[in-house]
Design a binder for these strands. Structure first.
Lengths: 111, 111
DNA sequence: ACAGTATATACCCTGTCGGTTATCCAAGTG
DNA sequence: CACTTGGATAACCGACAGGGTATATACTGT
């Protein structure tokens, strides 16, 4: 338990699994069908990692185990990256300003 | 080259390095001082991973190599997580609505 | 040219990851 | 109860990640 969220997200298969869970919960087997090249135990272990990272929850109904997204941990990641958001907005602004100054320079040439 | 951003972010040391670069560029050695338990080559290799993931750029000046943040890739991660943002806002709304309905229920009891 | 500082690379070792097959368990069904 | 189905766990394996020490490279000042 208590596994690092970022390392859980490091694997592309697991990221795609989360993608599949955005709109609806899905049974483990259903998720598995999306990855025909991975064996059933492989799928099960990926799901375990996601569980241990707190990224999904499971609900048992009849014979099926339905996985669904848990928002909290993803929100943490979002919070982390928010620190940087201001930064790249600044960089893009700089680029824009640079291009803008160039354009203006050209304009002045012609004027 | 061309290394996966998510796996580069999977290591906590590398995340902290990025944190150190948010406000200013820093020389490799300067970054190293923040991690006294890791040897100089270890630091250098973490920086290489960040470089190969496109998360930082390097600039050589005199004897120093100054690392600074590159926004593009972080913006990609942000774009990825954006798909989920709506989701957890929905979940939080649901929670809020639930608590709200409870409060209202209590209110009705008293009323 | 030499010594010193800043950083990267080579090489090795160990632990973890992701995959596989075989097996187990739990739930539903005849 | 025996059988099937959905899914998790166990045991094993090759690849790789991340750490260390030793060494190479690059630039500076003398």
């Amino acid at each position: 338990m208590e596994r690092d969220v970022f390392s859980a997200l490091a694997d592309p298969t697991r990221r795609r699994m989360l993608d599949l869970l955005v709109r609806q919960e899905r049974a483990a087997g259903e998720l598995g069908h999306a990855f025909p090249h991975i064996s059933q135990p492989g799928i099960s272990r990926h799901l375990r990692v996601l569980r241990e990272a707190g990224l999904v929850r499971v609900r048992q109904e009849r014979r099926h185990r339905y996985y669904s997204l848990r928002s909290e941990r993803l929100a943490e990641v979002d919070a982390w990256i928010t620190k940087y958001r201001g930064f790249w907005e600044f960089e893009l602004d700089s680029l824009e300003a640079y291009l803008d100054s160039k354009k203006r320079a050209r304009g002045e040439h012609r004027a």
